[in-house]
């Protein structure tokens, strides 16, 4: 399907003009000497502002590592990472903490809510840590969107997995970060709850111009994204715009059977 593997010209322009996060020739090498393993091998990728990007790849492809490096959670061995205009590579802990606090949001596979806090307190936690006052209207809108209105005073242990993940989404959204990184957000959910969460993520991109980068290995989840970046063996091997689940699955299969060749063709 050559039409879908090449990006539309308009999209190209948008990427250059407004990039939310960017990796430039990023290498990530674990261990040293004989035991060296390269998780990322010269990855360069631009993630557009206001876009829902999925990063896909088989286990060990380096997709989670790429996300961690982009989010400033992990350091790169070589290359540079930007969030917006800011060079993340080489920042100290204090600056990284501020970056995470003000510009980045996270959604995890394990939800990662604080068991001692209610849903509302969990949602507002990033703002209170930063000492910022929540925007009442925006908060109400986010709650409305995730549909948690009647669950705000519950603790995580009293919520279902889907509800917990929606709380986590609301927590990421309420601070209006430049980019939200979601690590397998549906990995621990049944398909219905997963679909709810994914629909909600897509809506927040469409309606509120939020930038979301999601790592997943589920073609169905990836099909909610505007763009899918395929990773294998620590390199970007293919991209799809406006993907369908079938298209994603096909690309995955191709990468599996013919890993070396495809890299050239899709890069075009």
């Amino acid at each position: 399907m050559p039409t879908t593997t090449t990006g539309p010209p308009g999209a190209e322009v948008r990427q250059d003009a407004t990039v939310a996060a960017r990796a430039v020739d990023v290498w990530k090498v674990y261990g040293s000497g004989e035991a060296q393993v390269a998780a990322l091998r010269g990855v360069s990728v631009d993630l557009g502002r206001g876009q829902f990007t999925a990063i896909m790849g088989p286990s060990g492809s380096g997709k989670s590592t790429l996300m961690h490096c982009l989010a400033g959670l992990d350091t790169v061995t070589r290359g540079e990472v930007y969030i917006g205009d800011m060079l993340v590579t080489g920042l100290g802990d204090a600056k990284l903490t501020r970056l995470r606090r003000d510009q980045v949001g996270f959604i995890f596979q394990q939800f990662n809510l604080l068991p001692t806090l209610t849903a509302q307190e969990n949602i507002l936690l990033p703002l209170s840590i930063a000492g910022r006052k929540p925007d009442r209207d925006w908060f109400a809108q986010v709650i409305e969107t995730v549909g948690l209105g009647d669950r705000l005073s519950h603790r995580p242990s009293q919520l279902s997995g889907g509800q917990q993940q929606r709380v986590a989404c609301a927590r990421a959204l309420v601070a209006r970060p430049d980019v939200i990184f979601a690590d397998e957000p549906t990995g621990n959910l049944d398909s219905r709850s997963g679909a709810e969460v994914l629909g909600f993520l897509r809506r927040s991109v469409r309606d509120y111009c939020q930038t979301i980068v999601m790592v997943t290995h589920d073609p169905n989840a990836a099909s909610y994204a505007d763009r899918v970046v395929f990773l294998a063996d620590g390199q970007v091997r293919a991209e799809l715009y406006a993907p369908t689940a079938d298209a994603v699955l096909n690309t995955m299969r191709r990468l599996d059977t013919d890993p070396v060749d495809t890299s050239q063709t899709v890069r075009a």
């Binding site: 501020r98 995470r100 606090r101 003000d102 990662n112 840590i129």
Partner: peptide
């Protein structure tokens, strides 16, 4: 550990 990691991930400073 996980909670602490989360708190740090969403912007809690070391001193905090």
């Amino acid at each position: 550990t996980r909670e602490l990691g989360l708190l740090r991930a969403i912007g809690l400073r070391r001193a905090q």
